[in-house]
Structure formats: structure tokens, C-alpha cells
Amino acid sequence: MPSLVEVQSLSKSFALLAQSPDAARTFKALDEVSFTMTRPERIGLIGPSGSGKSTLLRSLSGLILGDAGSGPVIVLGRTVQMDGRLGADVRAARADLGMVAQQFNLVGRLSLFTNAALGLLGRIPPLRGLFGLWTPEEKQRVMRALDTVGIADKASQRAKTLSGGQQQRGAIARAIVQDARLILADEPVASLDPVTARKVMELLVHLNEDRGVGVIVTLHQVDYAMKYCDRILALKDGKIVYDGPADGLNPDRLSEIYGPEIEQAYWRDPS
């Protein structure tokens, strides 16, 4: 069985508007990052702001392309990108990848049902997907997914009328409809209140433990990462500075990673 994720020496530079003539012209968001996920784990990507967490996560689905010369990003046996170019079967890879983002990525004017049904796009004939001609079985599948995340009663509501937590669960429902084998969640709880945030994280744990879905989640809150993830990848200045079990991180090590930002890295008291 192929690895779920395989990333080899991935680099990404962004051009910067020079503040002064001698300022660096590029900013290295990712610097030779490599890691693999061989079984469905819950990986927490942590690190201070600007450390490259989101860039890494978005690179995994090819929403961001690495620099020329970067090694391959292989997800579920398919090459998403290589040498700064999208792989040929990136769409097939994306069909198996659920994406959950901080701003929910739902289309506000479409109903929650339609938004979740869009998870079918990568799996049905393009023309049928274009016109939204879902079969009765597919409609059932969408409703079951909405039920799993506990918002089936909101199916007909427009996404923009839902609360942040409901929208986030809608995005997870879309990933369930996709039958995603890997969920990439980019700061999924950053715009939620603590109670809703916990529910969303528990949902991701449930998908991992009961359905064998791999989860990679970027989290600004270290305590959330340590509580809900079994493996932590810590990034600093675009480099992986820690890769190991959550309990291998002690406060000193975290202070080292976060620097002066450490005080904002906890949502609640870690005790």
C-alpha cells in the first residue's frame, strides 16, 4: 500500500516588495521540507505565524506550487506536483482529498446541500457535475454526510446564513461526501469559539479513528494540537524543526520554536 503522503525537499519562495533597497527580494516560506505519512494519522502542523504551515498544507493539494527544482509531492499514490508543476493526475488526487479551510471555502449563495454535494464533482462524469444532476443515491449520500456532522436539518439553507461552526461542519461534510481518504484542514478552528472548536476537532478525530481517514491539520493553538493529534510537525522559518509524538514536546522546546509568540500559542491554560 502506498504512503498517504510523501513530500520530498519541497521549497517555496514568495517574491517580496522590497521595503528598502537592501531588503531581501524573496521570502522562503518552505525550505527543503520532507515528511511522509504511511498510515492514517492525525498530524498537527504547528509553528509561529509565517512559519509556512498553510503553505505546506496548500501545497499538498496543489493549490500552491513549489519552486522549480522541488521534489515530488505524492498524495495517495498520485503525484500532485513535482519540480514546481502540477502533476498530470492532480484532479484524481484532489478527488480523494478533503480540504477544510479557516474561511470555510463554502459558496455562500448556494444551499448547504449543494455545497456538500460539490464533493461529488471529482467522482462523477464532468457534464453531470456541471449541471448538478445528482442521482437519488448521491443525494442520500450527501444527506447522510450532513447527518454525520449533525446539520442535516440545515440542508436547504444558504451557506452564508449559517454560523461559523455550522459552515465548518458543512466543509467537513463535503469531505465525507468526497469519501476523502485524507483531510487537509487549514486552521479549521481559528474563527470559532472554544466550544464549537472542540466539536469540530472531535469530528476530525472521529473520522480518523472510525473511518481510517488521515488528517493533517494546521493549528495555531499548541494545546489543541497536543490534545487532538498523535503526531506533531513543527515548522519554523519554513523548516521542520520537530517531527514526533505530541508528548515529546515540552514547554522549553515549544518556547524555542515559537520564540516571543509563545504566549499567544495557547488558547487556554495548558494545565
Partner: peptide, 11 residues
Amino acid sequence: PIEGVRATGGT
């Protein structure tokens, strides 16, 4: 929202 659709494997 467009990225959301792209990320599901849409054309």
C-alpha cells in the same frame, strides 16, 4: 469558494 470547488477535483 472557488478553491473549495477546485480542491474537490472539479474541472
